[in-house]
Every structure is written in C-alpha cells, then in structure tokens.
Design a protein around this nucleic acid. Structure first.
Length: 209
DNA sequence: AAGTACCA
DNA sequence: TGGG
C-alpha cells in the first residue's frame, strides 16, 4: 500500500547518466552548510574569472580543499592558492559528509568548488576534465534558487536533457556521465527561500590531483 | 576552453 | 517556458 505521508527520501532520477537525488538535504542541513560556506567565502573571497578567450564568466567562484579551480587567459587549472596568495580553506564537514554518503568511493575529495549564481548568471555547456584522473566521480550540491541543469554526452553536439535543480538536491556525475557536457542555462532568481538575498550556490566535490 | 544568442 |  502506498503511504502518502512516507518520509523516505525520493528515489534518484537519471538525467543522461547523471544521478540526481531531489531533496537530499533538509532545511536544517542546508542552513548548516550555508553557514560553513560563508566561512569559506570569508577566507577565500568569491571572484569572477576570465575564460582563456578573455570573456568574463557570470558566475562568482571560490574553493576549498588542497586545490581550487581557477581560469584566466593562461587556461583552466587547479591551483594550490587563491588570488590573495593564501591556501584555500578546508572543505566544510557538512559538504564532506554528502560526498561520503553518495560518491560510492572510499577516497575523500581534495577540491571543493563553490559557485555563486547571482541574477542572470549561467554557465555554458562544458566538461569537467581538468582533473588528473576523471575516473573519480564529481558530486554536486545545489542551494538557494532553482537552476536549470542541462546534460548531454561526451560530444558537445550530443543531444541534451534538462531538469530544474532545487535547493538541497544532490547530483552525481560518475561512470559514463563523468565526462558528460553539462551546464546551467538559467536560474529563477529570488524564487528560493534559503538565500534571503537571492541567488544559487553550487558546491562541487572532486578528486582533482 | 565554462562565452553569447536565438527559436517556437 | 522549454529546447538545443
């Protein structure tokens, strides 16, 4: 019999091989994570990077862990220090806990990217392929306003599928989908309830080195 | 090269 | 709004 008041987590959804857990984090877990992410941004301020082609990205980024992803005219890379010259802060415990629960591997990540999407921010279709060994999964956590996530295949021209990611959702890029092209087409600025000022935060965990 | 645009 |  179906229990309409069942409180079990939702079953995961598959989007072109990416596993999406809707509502993985409850309100309390999201608040606790946000508090830790604010500390990360205090230690390593959010900044807008430039693509190798010289165009400014709309998303503001920072990172935690041994290395953080950066880009400028010299290219995409993982760097051991942030723009102010200091080491990146530690990966927050609440974020590590999500990795341990969903990654399916017994090695911890060495990099945690924190991306902030303000009004109008988006991220074009791309592959995460700057890591030394792409066989390790990537785990993505969404907080704040909804974001329209699009996933394709290994070629930029492969067909894509889209789905709205909401605050508390967790996505895992593993196996065949680890190198899938993906991006965020738009956000619903101000629609979320977790960030009072509006905007979307995406946290991604990787084994980069 | 993680950019912008546009279409129905 | 959803798509590509």
């Amino acid at each position: 019999m179906v229990d309409l008041f069942d409180t079990e987590p939702d079953a995961p959804v598959d989007l072109n091989g990416v596993t999406i857990w809707s509502g993985w984090l409850d309100d309390a877990a999201q608040s606790a994570m946000l508090a830790e992410l604010r500390d990360v941004a205090r230690a390593a301020p959010l900044r807008q990077y430039e693509t190798p082609g010289g165009q400014k990205m709309s998303v503001r980024m920072t990172a935690a862990g041994e290395v953080g992803w950066v880009t400028d005219k010299a290219g995409y890379r993982y760097a051991p220090c942030h723009a102010d010259g200091g080491a990146w802060p530690d990966i927050p415990a609440s974020v590590l806990a999500v990795w341990r629960a969903v990654s399916g591997v017994d090695r911890d990540p060495d990099s945690c990217l924190v991306n902030f999407y303000g009004e109008g921010a988006k991220m074009g279709l791309h592959q995460d392929k700057d890591e030394a060994d792409p066989r390790w999964p990537v785990v993505s956590i969404s907080l704040g306003d909804p974001g329209l996530f699009r996933v394709g295949g290994h070629s930029r021209k492969d067909p894509t599928k889209s789905r709205w990611l909401n605050s508390g959702d967790v996505a895992v890029l593993a196996g065949e989908a680890r190198l899938a092209f993906h991006g965020i087409d738009r956000i619903k600025f101000g629609e979320g309830e977790v960030l009072p000022e509006g905007g979307r935060i995406n946290v991604t965990l990787r084994v980069a080195q």
